[in-house]
Simulated assay, not measured.
Amino acid sequence: MISIKRINENDIDLCYELDLNTLSLWTKKQWGSEFKKQGTKIVGLLIDNLLIGVCVFQVVLDEAQINYFVVDQKFRKKGFGSYLMNYLIKQCEKLNVKKLLLEVSRSNVIGQKFYSRFDFPTVGVRKNYYKDGSDALLKEKKITK
């Protein structure tokens, strides 16, 4: 059974392990600090009790920033990422969020295609933003009810 639930600090190890096997973006300490940030919400996508996806987003007034979004590689191209993104967009609508923002590497063509399916146009660029020297594309989706 597929479900989405709020993740709490007890699940840091699961989040860190999924990150290690996918993006390798954050250390365990960084994961711990995400759970303490004001306005940050962390949700997990599960099949039965197996964590296969995570979304970390932060709400500030009427905007939300996606800080982390991943689905385990074994479960990609099966609709799970879309399921998680649609959930996130619905949550933003409920929270009266007007804009949903994110960054994606210019070299991440698959990620760019994924976000374009949800109407995230590029609104800016951060040059040499990532460790590998690639640019970050700033994307923004307007949320309307």
Rank of each mutant, 00 (worst) to 15 (best):
Q38F: 13
Q38D: 14
K127M: 07
T27S: 15
K99H: 12
N128M: 09
V56A: 13
L25H: 06
Q73G: 03
V71Q: 09
N67L: 12
C92I: 03
E63M: 08
E34T: 01
V54W: 02
I4C: 08
L61G: 00
A136H: 00
L23T: 01
E17N: 10
K29I: 10
L18F: 10
G124T: 11
N96E: 15
R76S: 07
S116Q: 15
V56N: 12
M85N: 04
Q38Y: 12
K113V: 09
Y68R: 14
I7A: 02
K113T: 07
E34Q: 13
R106A: 11
L20Y: 01
I66T: 10
K113Y: 08
V104R: 08
R6P: 00
L88W: 02
Q38P: 12
N10T: 01
V43F: 14
D119P: 04
S105V: 09
K5A: 04
G124I: 12
G39N: 13
V60A: 10
I52C: 09
L102S: 08
K94W: 02
W31K: 02
G111L: 06
L45C: 15
L102R: 09
I143L: 03
E140Y: 00
F118Q: 08
G133A: 06
L137M: 05
Y87T: 00
L138H: 00
L50Q: 12
S24K: 14
Q65D: 14
Q91N: 10
P121D: 06
S107D: 12
W31I: 05
E34F: 11
I12D: 04
N8M: 01
A136N: 01
Q91E: 15
K94L: 13
W26C: 02
S3Q: 08
S33L: 13
D119I: 05
Q112M: 10
F35H: 10
Y68S: 05
L14C: 05
S134Y: 02
V70W: 00
I143H: 03
F35A: 09
L14Q: 07
G111T: 04
L84G: 08
I66Y: 13
I52E: 13
